[in-house]
Design a protein around this nucleic acid. Sequence first.
DNA 1: TACCTTGCCTTTGTATACATAAGGTGCCCC
DNA 2: GGGGCACCTTATGTATACAAAGGCAAGGTA
Lengths: 242, 242
Amino acid sequence: MRDTKAATHAQRALITLRQRILNGQLAGGTRLFEVALAEDLGISRTPVRAALARLAEEALLDRTTGGGFAVRSFAVRDVVDTIELRGVLEGTAARLAAERGAPVDMLAEAREIIRQIDRLFTADSIDMDSYSALNTRFHAHLSRMSQSDVIQRQIERIIALPFASPSAFLDDHSQQLALIKTLGAAQEQHRAMIDAIANREGARAESLAREHARAARRNVESLLDAEANLREGVPSLAILAS
Amino acid sequence: MRDTKAATHAQRALITLRQRILNGQLAGGTRLFEVALAEDLGISRTPVRAALARLAEEALLDRTTGGGFAVRSFAVRDVVDTIELRGVLEGTAARLAAERGAPVDMLAEAREIIRQIDRLFTADSIDMDSYSALNTRFHAHLSRMSQSDVIQRQIERIIALPFASPSAFLDDHSQQLALIKTLGAAQEQHRAMIDAIANREGARAESLAREHARAARRNVESLLDAEANLREGVPSLAILAS
DNA sequence: TACCTTGCCTTTGTATACATAAGGTGCCCC
DNA sequence: GGGGCACCTTATGTATACAAAGGCAAGGTA
Protein backbone atom coordinates (compact mmCIF):
# COMPACT_ATOMS: atom_id res chain seq x y z
CA MET A 1 0.00 0.00 0.00
CA ARG A 2 2.80 2.31 0.89
CA ASP A 3 4.23 1.52 -2.51
CA THR A 4 1.33 3.27 -4.26
CA LYS A 5 3.56 6.30 -4.44
CA ALA A 6 1.88 9.08 -6.30
CA ALA A 7 3.64 11.89 -8.07
CA THR A 8 3.19 14.69 -5.57
CA HIS A 9 3.35 15.13 -1.84
CA ALA A 10 -0.24 16.30 -1.84
CA GLN A 11 -1.40 13.10 -3.53
CA ARG A 12 0.55 10.93 -1.14
CA ALA A 13 -0.84 12.87 1.81
CA LEU A 14 -4.34 12.46 0.38
CA ILE A 15 -3.94 8.71 0.06
CA THR A 16 -2.41 8.32 3.50
CA LEU A 17 -5.00 10.44 5.26
CA ARG A 18 -7.89 8.88 3.40
CA GLN A 19 -6.70 5.48 4.51
CA ARG A 20 -6.31 6.55 8.10
CA ILE A 21 -9.86 7.87 8.11
CA LEU A 22 -11.36 4.84 6.41
CA ASN A 23 -9.66 2.32 8.65
CA GLY A 24 -10.71 4.17 11.78
CA GLN A 25 -7.20 5.19 12.80
CA LEU A 26 -8.48 8.76 12.76
CA ALA A 27 -11.73 8.65 14.70
CA GLY A 28 -14.76 10.67 13.69
CA GLY A 29 -14.74 14.15 15.17
CA THR A 30 -10.95 14.33 15.36
CA ARG A 31 -9.76 17.79 14.47
CA LEU A 32 -6.92 17.80 11.95
CA PHE A 33 -4.23 20.42 12.39
CA GLU A 34 -2.10 21.40 9.45
CA VAL A 35 1.15 21.81 11.35
CA ALA A 36 0.85 18.53 13.21
CA LEU A 37 0.00 16.62 10.04
CA ALA A 38 2.78 18.29 8.11
CA GLU A 39 5.32 17.26 10.72
CA ASP A 40 3.89 13.78 10.92
CA LEU A 41 3.99 13.30 7.16
CA GLY A 42 7.34 15.02 6.80
CA ILE A 43 6.09 17.64 4.33
CA SER A 44 5.11 21.29 4.54
CA ARG A 45 1.69 22.71 5.29
CA THR A 46 0.93 23.57 1.66
CA PRO A 47 0.40 20.02 0.31
CA VAL A 48 -1.34 19.09 3.56
CA ARG A 49 -3.90 21.81 2.96
CA ALA A 50 -4.41 20.61 -0.58
CA ALA A 51 -5.03 17.08 0.67
CA LEU A 52 -7.44 18.28 3.35
CA ALA A 53 -9.42 20.27 0.80
CA ARG A 54 -9.79 17.20 -1.37
CA LEU A 55 -10.89 15.06 1.55
CA ALA A 56 -13.53 17.65 2.31
CA GLU A 57 -14.60 17.35 -1.32
CA GLU A 58 -14.89 13.59 -0.82
CA ALA A 59 -17.11 14.23 2.20
CA LEU A 60 -14.67 12.50 4.53
CA LEU A 61 -13.90 15.74 6.35
CA ASP A 62 -16.09 18.53 7.60
CA ARG A 63 -14.95 22.12 7.54
CA THR A 64 -15.10 23.53 11.06
CA THR A 65 -16.04 27.09 11.85
CA GLY A 66 -12.89 29.08 11.82
CA GLY A 67 -11.30 27.36 8.88
CA GLY A 68 -10.18 24.00 10.22
CA PHE A 69 -11.06 20.45 9.31
CA ALA A 70 -12.45 17.58 11.37
CA VAL A 71 -12.96 13.93 10.51
CA ARG A 72 -16.59 13.34 9.67
CA SER A 73 -18.23 10.88 11.98
CA PHE A 74 -20.46 8.20 10.60
CA ALA A 75 -23.09 6.74 12.87
CA VAL A 76 -24.90 3.51 12.05
CA ARG A 77 -27.87 5.46 10.81
CA ASP A 78 -25.64 7.40 8.42
CA VAL A 79 -24.37 4.16 6.93
CA VAL A 80 -27.89 2.84 6.49
CA ASP A 81 -29.08 6.12 4.99
CA THR A 82 -26.15 6.25 2.60
CA ILE A 83 -26.92 2.77 1.32
CA GLU A 84 -30.57 3.75 1.00
CA LEU A 85 -29.43 6.78 -0.96
CA ARG A 86 -27.38 4.63 -3.29
CA GLY A 87 -30.49 2.55 -3.92
CA VAL A 88 -32.47 5.68 -4.70
CA LEU A 89 -29.83 7.01 -7.08
CA GLU A 90 -29.23 3.71 -8.83
CA GLY A 91 -33.00 3.35 -9.04
CA THR A 92 -33.16 6.72 -10.75
CA ALA A 93 -30.38 5.71 -13.13
CA ALA A 94 -32.28 2.54 -14.01
CA ARG A 95 -35.54 4.40 -14.47
CA LEU A 96 -33.96 7.03 -16.70
CA ALA A 97 -32.27 4.31 -18.72
CA ALA A 98 -35.68 2.70 -19.25
CA GLU A 99 -37.48 5.96 -19.99
CA ARG A 100 -34.85 7.35 -22.31
CA GLY A 101 -34.12 4.04 -23.94
CA ALA A 102 -30.76 2.38 -23.58
CA PRO A 103 -28.73 1.87 -26.78
CA VAL A 104 -28.56 -1.76 -27.87
CA ASP A 105 -24.81 -1.95 -27.40
CA MET A 106 -25.09 -0.82 -23.80
CA LEU A 107 -27.77 -3.43 -23.15
CA ALA A 108 -25.53 -6.01 -24.79
CA GLU A 109 -22.59 -5.07 -22.62
CA ALA A 110 -24.73 -5.27 -19.48
CA ARG A 111 -25.84 -8.75 -20.48
CA GLU A 112 -22.26 -9.73 -21.19
CA ILE A 113 -21.25 -8.74 -17.65
CA ILE A 114 -24.17 -10.76 -16.29
CA ARG A 115 -23.00 -13.76 -18.34
CA GLN A 116 -19.50 -13.43 -16.94
CA ILE A 117 -20.90 -13.43 -13.42
CA ASP A 118 -22.94 -16.51 -14.29
CA ARG A 119 -19.76 -18.30 -15.26
CA LEU A 120 -18.34 -17.73 -11.78
CA PHE A 121 -21.17 -19.76 -10.32
CA THR A 122 -20.31 -22.84 -12.33
CA ALA A 123 -17.14 -23.38 -10.31
CA ASP A 124 -17.26 -25.23 -6.99
CA SER A 125 -16.35 -22.16 -4.98
CA ILE A 126 -16.85 -18.59 -6.00
CA ASP A 127 -13.87 -16.35 -6.65
CA MET A 128 -14.94 -13.38 -4.57
CA ASP A 129 -12.41 -11.00 -6.07
CA SER A 130 -13.68 -11.69 -9.57
CA TYR A 131 -17.28 -11.39 -8.43
CA SER A 132 -16.54 -8.11 -6.71
CA ALA A 133 -14.82 -6.70 -9.79
CA LEU A 134 -17.63 -7.76 -12.14
CA ASN A 135 -20.30 -6.54 -9.75
CA THR A 136 -18.61 -3.15 -9.57
CA ARG A 137 -18.43 -3.09 -13.36
CA PHE A 138 -22.11 -3.90 -13.65
CA HIS A 139 -23.11 -1.10 -11.33
CA ALA A 140 -20.86 1.41 -13.06
CA HIS A 141 -22.37 0.38 -16.36
CA LEU A 142 -25.90 0.73 -15.01
CA SER A 143 -25.05 4.25 -13.90
CA ARG A 144 -23.79 5.03 -17.40
CA MET A 145 -26.97 3.70 -18.97
CA SER A 146 -28.91 6.55 -17.37
CA GLN A 147 -27.28 8.74 -20.01
CA SER A 148 -27.12 11.44 -17.39
CA ASP A 149 -23.79 12.91 -16.31
CA VAL A 150 -25.50 14.53 -13.34
CA ILE A 151 -26.77 11.20 -12.01
CA GLN A 152 -23.50 9.45 -12.76
CA ARG A 153 -21.52 12.03 -10.80
CA GLN A 154 -23.81 11.70 -7.81
CA ILE A 155 -23.50 7.94 -7.79
CA GLU A 156 -19.74 8.06 -8.10
CA ARG A 157 -19.58 10.45 -5.21
CA ILE A 158 -21.66 8.19 -3.00
CA ILE A 159 -19.95 4.90 -3.76
CA ALA A 160 -16.59 6.49 -2.98
CA LEU A 161 -17.59 5.87 0.63
CA PRO A 162 -16.40 2.33 1.26
CA PHE A 163 -19.48 1.12 3.08
CA ALA A 164 -21.77 2.42 0.31
CA SER A 165 -20.06 0.76 -2.62
CA PRO A 166 -22.07 -1.96 -4.37
CA SER A 167 -19.31 -4.40 -3.56
CA ALA A 168 -18.92 -3.46 0.09
CA PHE A 169 -18.93 -6.36 2.55
CA LEU A 170 -18.00 -8.84 -0.16
CA ASP A 171 -14.54 -8.93 1.37
CA ASP A 172 -16.01 -9.78 4.74
CA HIS A 173 -14.81 -13.30 5.48
CA SER A 174 -16.83 -13.85 8.62
CA GLN A 175 -20.16 -14.70 7.04
CA GLN A 176 -18.93 -15.84 3.67
CA LEU A 177 -21.25 -18.79 3.39
CA ALA A 178 -24.38 -16.86 4.26
CA LEU A 179 -23.30 -14.19 1.83
CA ILE A 180 -22.84 -16.55 -1.09
CA LYS A 181 -26.41 -17.71 -0.75
CA THR A 182 -27.57 -14.19 -1.48
CA LEU A 183 -25.45 -13.77 -4.58
CA GLY A 184 -27.79 -15.86 -6.66
CA ALA A 185 -30.67 -13.59 -5.73
CA ALA A 186 -28.57 -10.53 -6.52
CA GLN A 187 -27.73 -11.91 -9.94
CA GLU A 188 -31.41 -12.51 -10.59
CA GLN A 189 -32.04 -8.86 -9.78
CA HIS A 190 -29.29 -7.80 -12.17
CA ARG A 191 -31.01 -9.76 -14.91
CA ALA A 192 -34.44 -8.37 -14.10
CA MET A 193 -33.15 -4.78 -14.06
CA ILE A 194 -31.71 -5.05 -17.54
CA ASP A 195 -34.87 -6.77 -18.71
CA ALA A 196 -36.97 -3.94 -17.31
CA ILE A 197 -34.74 -1.32 -18.93
CA ALA A 198 -34.93 -3.10 -22.29
CA ASN A 199 -38.73 -3.18 -22.01
CA ARG A 200 -38.89 0.50 -21.06
CA GLU A 201 -40.46 -0.42 -17.72
CA GLY A 202 -39.18 2.52 -15.69
CA ALA A 203 -41.00 1.91 -12.43
CA ARG A 204 -40.00 -1.75 -12.39
CA ALA A 205 -36.36 -0.95 -13.11
CA GLU A 206 -36.35 1.63 -10.33
CA SER A 207 -37.85 -0.55 -7.64
CA LEU A 208 -35.59 -3.47 -8.56
CA ALA A 209 -32.51 -1.29 -8.15
CA ARG A 210 -33.77 -0.06 -4.80
CA GLU A 211 -34.48 -3.52 -3.55
CA HIS A 212 -31.09 -4.62 -4.80
CA ALA A 213 -29.43 -2.07 -2.54
CA ARG A 214 -31.45 -3.35 0.39
CA ALA A 215 -29.30 -6.48 0.42
CA ALA A 216 -26.33 -4.35 1.44
CA ARG A 217 -28.42 -2.75 4.13
CA ARG A 218 -29.48 -6.10 5.54
CA ASN A 219 -25.83 -7.08 5.51
CA VAL A 220 -24.83 -4.08 7.59
CA GLU A 221 -27.65 -4.58 10.00
CA SER A 222 -26.89 -8.23 10.56
CA LEU A 223 -23.23 -7.45 11.06
CA LEU A 224 -24.09 -4.83 13.64
CA ASP A 225 -26.52 -7.09 15.44
CA ALA A 226 -23.82 -9.75 15.65
CA GLU A 227 -21.17 -9.83 18.32
CA ALA A 228 -18.60 -7.07 18.14
CA ASN A 229 -15.83 -9.50 17.25
CA LEU A 230 -17.58 -10.24 13.99
CA ARG A 231 -17.28 -6.61 13.02
CA GLU A 232 -13.56 -6.54 13.36
CA GLY A 233 -12.89 -8.39 10.15
CA VAL A 234 -15.00 -5.94 8.15
CA PRO A 235 -12.84 -3.15 6.79
CA SER A 236 -15.79 -1.28 5.29
CA LEU A 237 -17.17 -0.68 8.75
CA ALA A 238 -13.95 0.45 10.43
CA ILE A 239 -14.94 4.06 9.88
CA LEU A 240 -18.05 3.67 12.04
CA ALA A 241 -18.18 5.79 15.16
CA SER A 242 -17.68 3.62 18.23
CA MET B 1 -22.75 43.18 -3.84
CA ARG B 2 -19.18 44.25 -3.60
CA ASP B 3 -19.94 45.34 -0.07
CA THR B 4 -20.45 41.74 1.06
CA LYS B 5 -16.86 41.86 2.21
CA ALA B 6 -15.87 38.69 3.93
CA ALA B 7 -13.09 38.35 6.42
CA THR B 8 -10.40 36.78 4.28
CA HIS B 9 -9.07 37.18 0.77
CA ALA B 10 -9.96 33.56 0.05
CA GLN B 11 -13.60 34.16 0.98
CA ARG B 12 -13.81 37.28 -1.12
CA ALA B 13 -12.23 35.44 -4.03
CA LEU B 14 -14.71 32.59 -3.55
CA ILE B 15 -17.66 34.96 -3.64
CA THR B 16 -16.37 36.88 -6.63
CA LEU B 17 -15.53 33.81 -8.67
CA ARG B 18 -18.76 32.06 -7.78
CA GLN B 19 -20.69 35.04 -9.00
CA ARG B 20 -18.73 35.24 -12.22
CA ILE B 21 -19.47 31.60 -12.91
CA LEU B 22 -23.15 31.81 -12.05
CA ASN B 23 -23.81 34.89 -14.11
CA GLY B 24 -22.09 33.43 -17.12
CA GLN B 25 -19.20 35.86 -17.13
CA LEU B 26 -16.90 32.85 -16.94
CA ALA B 27 -18.18 30.49 -19.61
CA GLY B 28 -18.32 26.74 -19.11
CA GLY B 29 -15.08 25.03 -20.07
CA THR B 30 -12.95 28.08 -19.31
CA ARG B 31 -9.72 27.05 -17.70
CA LEU B 32 -8.85 29.05 -14.62
CA PHE B 33 -5.19 29.89 -14.06
CA GLU B 34 -4.00 30.71 -10.61
CA VAL B 35 -1.55 33.42 -11.58
CA ALA B 36 -3.97 35.22 -13.87
CA LEU B 37 -6.74 35.14 -11.26
CA ALA B 38 -4.38 36.26 -8.52
CA GLU B 39 -3.32 39.28 -10.55
CA ASP B 40 -6.88 40.03 -11.55
CA LEU B 41 -8.10 39.89 -7.96
CA GLY B 42 -5.06 41.65 -6.59
CA ILE B 43 -4.13 38.85 -4.19
CA SER B 44 -1.57 36.06 -4.15
CA ARG B 45 -1.98 32.55 -5.50
CA THR B 46 -2.54 30.98 -2.10
CA PRO B 47 -6.04 32.31 -1.38
CA VAL B 48 -6.93 31.83 -5.03
CA ARG B 49 -6.15 28.12 -4.73
CA ALA B 50 -8.24 27.91 -1.60
CA ALA B 51 -11.17 29.52 -3.40
CA LEU B 52 -10.79 27.22 -6.41
CA ALA B 53 -10.78 24.16 -4.17
CA ARG B 54 -14.02 25.26 -2.58
CA LEU B 55 -15.65 25.92 -5.91
CA ALA B 56 -14.68 22.41 -6.95
CA GLU B 57 -16.35 21.23 -3.76
CA GLU B 58 -19.48 23.11 -4.81
CA ALA B 59 -19.36 21.34 -8.16
CA LEU B 60 -18.98 24.61 -10.04
CA LEU B 61 -15.47 23.70 -11.18
CA ASP B 62 -14.00 20.52 -12.53
CA ARG B 63 -10.46 19.48 -11.73
CA THR B 64 -8.54 19.05 -14.96
CA THR B 65 -5.89 16.42 -15.48
CA GLY B 66 -2.63 17.91 -14.44
CA GLY B 67 -3.93 19.79 -11.47
CA GLY B 68 -5.83 22.73 -12.91
CA PHE B 69 -9.44 23.83 -12.72
CA ALA B 70 -12.01 24.53 -15.41
CA VAL B 71 -15.48 26.01 -15.19
CA ARG B 72 -18.03 23.24 -15.33
CA SER B 73 -20.33 23.53 -18.28
CA PHE B 74 -24.01 23.00 -17.85
CA ALA B 75 -25.99 21.95 -20.88
CA VAL B 76 -29.78 22.12 -20.96
CA ARG B 77 -29.97 18.41 -20.24
CA ASP B 78 -27.82 18.89 -17.14
CA VAL B 79 -30.20 21.51 -15.83
CA VAL B 80 -33.18 19.25 -16.45
CA ASP B 81 -31.44 16.28 -14.87
CA THR B 82 -30.44 18.30 -11.84
CA ILE B 83 -34.01 19.41 -11.27
CA GLU B 84 -35.13 15.81 -11.71
CA LEU B 85 -32.52 14.83 -9.15
CA ARG B 86 -33.83 17.39 -6.70
CA GLY B 87 -37.27 15.88 -7.13
CA VAL B 88 -35.88 12.43 -6.44
CA LEU B 89 -34.03 13.57 -3.33
CA GLU B 90 -36.89 15.62 -1.95
CA GLY B 91 -39.13 12.68 -2.72
CA THR B 92 -36.85 10.49 -0.65
CA ALA B 93 -36.85 13.01 2.17
CA ALA B 94 -40.66 13.06 2.12
CA ARG B 95 -40.89 9.27 2.01
CA LEU B 96 -38.45 8.86 4.89
CA ALA B 97 -40.35 11.46 6.89
CA ALA B 98 -43.53 9.46 6.34
CA GLU B 99 -41.93 6.09 7.05
CA ARG B 100 -40.00 7.20 10.11
CA GLY B 101 -42.78 9.38 11.40
CA ALA B 102 -42.36 13.12 11.67
CA PRO B 103 -42.55 14.64 15.15
CA VAL B 104 -45.74 16.62 15.75
CA ASP B 105 -43.89 19.88 16.21
CA MET B 106 -42.20 19.52 12.82
CA LEU B 107 -45.55 18.82 11.20
CA ALA B 108 -46.96 21.85 12.97
CA GLU B 109 -44.17 24.06 11.73
CA ALA B 110 -44.63 22.81 8.16
CA ARG B 111 -48.33 23.66 8.40
CA GLU B 112 -47.50 27.06 9.81
CA ILE B 113 -45.30 27.83 6.80
CA ILE B 114 -48.10 26.71 4.51
CA ARG B 115 -50.49 29.02 6.37
CA GLN B 116 -48.12 31.92 5.91
CA ILE B 117 -47.97 31.25 2.19
CA ASP B 118 -51.78 31.12 2.12
CA ARG B 119 -51.87 34.59 3.59
CA LEU B 120 -49.84 35.93 0.67
CA PHE B 121 -52.60 34.88 -1.70
CA THR B 122 -55.20 37.01 0.03
CA ALA B 123 -53.54 40.18 -1.19
CA ASP B 124 -54.31 41.56 -4.65
CA SER B 125 -50.84 40.92 -5.97
CA ILE B 126 -48.37 38.43 -4.63
CA ASP B 127 -45.16 39.57 -2.98
CA MET B 128 -42.74 37.34 -4.84
CA ASP B 129 -39.84 37.93 -2.46
CA SER B 130 -41.93 36.79 0.50
CA TYR B 131 -43.21 33.81 -1.44
CA SER B 132 -39.72 32.85 -2.46
CA ALA B 133 -38.42 33.08 1.11
CA LEU B 134 -41.30 31.04 2.53
CA ASN B 135 -41.06 28.48 -0.25
CA THR B 136 -37.35 28.04 0.45
CA ARG B 137 -38.13 27.65 4.13
CA PHE B 138 -40.76 25.02 3.40
CA HIS B 139 -38.37 22.97 1.31
CA ALA B 140 -35.57 23.23 3.86
CA HIS B 141 -37.99 22.09 6.51
CA LEU B 142 -39.16 19.17 4.40
CA SER B 143 -35.56 18.10 4.01
CA ARG B 144 -35.12 18.26 7.78
CA MET B 145 -38.23 16.15 8.35
CA SER B 146 -36.46 13.19 6.72
CA GLN B 147 -34.47 12.98 9.94
CA SER B 148 -31.51 12.00 7.83
CA ASP B 149 -28.35 14.09 7.80
CA VAL B 150 -27.15 12.20 4.75
CA ILE B 151 -30.21 13.14 2.71
CA GLN B 152 -30.19 16.69 3.99
CA ARG B 153 -26.58 17.18 2.96
CA GLN B 154 -27.27 15.89 -0.53
CA ILE B 155 -30.24 18.19 -0.97
CA GLU B 156 -28.31 21.20 0.26
CA ARG B 157 -25.54 20.40 -2.16
CA ILE B 158 -27.92 20.22 -5.09
CA ILE B 159 -29.95 23.31 -4.39
CA ALA B 160 -26.76 25.33 -4.10
CA LEU B 161 -26.90 25.33 -7.89
CA PRO B 162 -29.08 28.34 -8.67
CA PHE B 163 -31.19 26.68 -11.34
CA ALA B 164 -31.94 23.71 -9.07
CA SER B 165 -33.17 25.65 -6.06
CA PRO B 166 -36.86 25.23 -5.24
CA SER B 167 -37.28 28.97 -5.67
CA ALA B 168 -35.42 29.26 -8.95
CA PHE B 169 -37.22 31.18 -11.69
CA LEU B 170 -39.46 32.93 -9.21
CA ASP B 171 -37.42 36.04 -9.85
CA ASP B 172 -38.04 35.74 -13.57
CA HIS B 173 -40.16 38.72 -14.45
CA SER B 174 -40.88 37.79 -18.03
CA GLN B 175 -43.65 35.30 -17.43
CA GLN B 176 -44.77 36.50 -14.06
CA LEU B 177 -48.47 36.15 -14.75
CA ALA B 178 -48.24 32.62 -16.08
CA LEU B 179 -46.08 31.73 -13.12
CA ILE B 180 -48.52 33.01 -10.53
CA LYS B 181 -51.19 30.73 -11.91
CA THR B 182 -49.05 27.75 -11.01
CA LEU B 183 -48.37 28.86 -7.46
CA GLY B 184 -51.80 27.79 -6.32
CA ALA B 185 -51.15 24.28 -7.60
CA ALA B 186 -47.75 24.26 -5.91
CA GLN B 187 -49.31 25.25 -2.63
CA GLU B 188 -51.83 22.46 -2.97
CA GLN B 189 -48.95 20.03 -3.40
CA HIS B 190 -47.25 21.42 -0.30
CA ARG B 191 -50.41 20.70 1.66
CA ALA B 192 -50.81 17.21 0.22
CA MET B 193 -47.18 16.32 0.98
CA ILE B 194 -47.51 17.20 4.63
CA ASP B 195 -50.83 15.37 4.75
CA ALA B 196 -49.19 12.26 3.28
CA ILE B 197 -46.31 12.46 5.73
CA ALA B 198 -48.68 12.84 8.66
CA ASN B 199 -50.61 9.77 7.46
CA ARG B 200 -47.41 7.76 7.00
CA GLU B 201 -48.14 7.41 3.29
CA GLY B 202 -44.58 7.14 2.04
CA ALA B 203 -45.20 6.40 -1.62
CA ARG B 204 -47.72 9.23 -1.90
CA ALA B 205 -45.39 11.70 -0.21
CA GLU B 206 -42.59 10.68 -2.53
CA SER B 207 -44.47 10.99 -5.76
CA LEU B 208 -45.98 14.32 -4.73
CA ALA B 209 -42.52 15.74 -4.08
CA ARG B 210 -41.32 14.47 -7.44
CA GLU B 211 -44.24 15.95 -9.27
CA HIS B 212 -43.74 19.19 -7.39
CA ALA B 213 -40.24 19.47 -8.82
CA ARG B 214 -41.59 18.88 -12.30
CA ALA B 215 -43.10 22.36 -12.21
CA ALA B 216 -39.58 23.80 -12.18
CA ARG B 217 -38.66 21.55 -15.07
CA ARG B 218 -41.62 22.71 -17.12
CA ASN B 219 -40.59 26.25 -16.34
CA VAL B 220 -37.09 25.72 -17.68
CA GLU B 221 -38.34 23.98 -20.76
CA SER B 222 -40.85 26.69 -21.59
CA LEU B 223 -38.22 29.36 -21.07
CA LEU B 224 -35.85 27.57 -23.39
CA ASP B 225 -38.51 27.05 -26.02
CA ALA B 226 -39.30 30.73 -25.92
CA GLU B 227 -37.38 33.35 -27.81
CA ALA B 228 -33.83 33.93 -26.67
CA ASN B 229 -34.63 37.41 -25.44
CA LEU B 230 -36.94 35.94 -22.85
CA ARG B 231 -34.02 34.04 -21.37
CA GLU B 232 -31.97 37.13 -20.76
CA GLY B 233 -33.95 38.28 -17.77
CA VAL B 234 -33.48 34.93 -16.03
CA PRO B 235 -30.40 35.00 -13.83
CA SER B 236 -30.73 31.34 -12.86
CA LEU B 237 -30.08 30.34 -16.44
CA ALA B 238 -27.10 32.61 -17.11
CA ILE B 239 -24.77 29.74 -16.34
CA LEU B 240 -26.16 27.70 -19.22
CA ALA B 241 -23.72 26.83 -21.98
CA SER B 242 -24.53 28.84 -25.08
C1' DT C 1 7.72 15.46 -45.82
C1' DA C 2 7.03 13.46 -41.59
C1' DC C 3 8.53 12.31 -37.25
C1' DC C 4 11.32 12.63 -33.36
C1' DT C 5 13.86 15.13 -30.13
C1' DT C 6 15.18 18.92 -27.47
C1' DG C 7 14.53 22.94 -25.04
C1' DC C 8 11.78 26.65 -23.47
C1' DC C 9 7.83 28.39 -21.39
C1' DT C 10 3.81 28.05 -18.86
C1' DT C 11 1.59 26.38 -14.89
C1' DT C 12 1.19 23.95 -10.83
C1' DG C 13 3.76 22.02 -6.63
C1' DT C 14 6.28 23.03 -2.37
C1' DA C 15 8.58 25.28 1.39
C1' DT C 16 8.81 28.87 4.42
C1' DA C 17 8.41 33.29 6.77
C1' DC C 18 5.42 36.41 8.39
C1' DA C 19 0.53 38.16 9.40
C1' DT C 20 -3.54 37.91 11.76
C1' DA C 21 -7.33 36.29 14.35
C1' DA C 22 -9.34 33.74 18.03
C1' DG C 23 -9.39 31.53 22.23
C1' DG C 24 -7.64 30.55 26.68
C1' DT C 25 -5.45 31.90 30.89
C1' DG C 26 -3.79 34.65 34.41
C1' DC C 27 -3.63 38.85 36.70
C1' DC C 28 -5.52 42.91 38.39
C1' DC C 29 -9.07 45.81 39.67
C1' DC C 30 -13.53 46.56 41.42
C1' DG D 1 -14.65 36.69 45.22
C1' DG D 2 -16.04 37.62 40.72
C1' DG D 3 -15.58 39.75 36.45
C1' DG D 4 -13.13 41.99 32.88
C1' DC D 5 -9.08 43.08 30.33
C1' DA D 6 -4.77 42.08 28.31
C1' DC D 7 -1.38 39.13 26.90
C1' DC D 8 0.18 35.03 24.95
C1' DT D 9 -0.36 30.97 22.54
C1' DT D 10 -1.99 28.43 18.82
C1' DA D 11 -4.16 28.08 14.72
C1' DT D 12 -5.09 29.40 9.99
C1' DG D 13 -4.34 33.15 6.32
C1' DT D 14 -1.15 35.17 2.98
C1' DA D 15 2.78 36.28 0.17
C1' DT D 16 6.56 34.87 -2.25
C1' DA D 17 10.58 32.41 -4.04
C1' DC D 18 12.01 28.46 -6.03
C1' DA D 19 11.23 23.58 -7.98
C1' DA D 20 9.57 20.57 -11.16
C1' DA D 21 6.61 18.76 -14.61
C1' DG D 22 4.12 18.92 -18.83
C1' DG D 23 2.94 20.76 -23.21
C1' DC D 24 4.11 23.04 -27.34
C1' DA D 25 6.92 24.61 -30.85
C1' DA D 26 10.89 24.64 -33.58
C1' DG D 27 14.54 22.55 -35.63
C1' DG D 28 16.98 18.76 -37.16
C1' DT D 29 17.30 14.28 -39.28
C1' DA D 30 15.81 10.19 -41.70
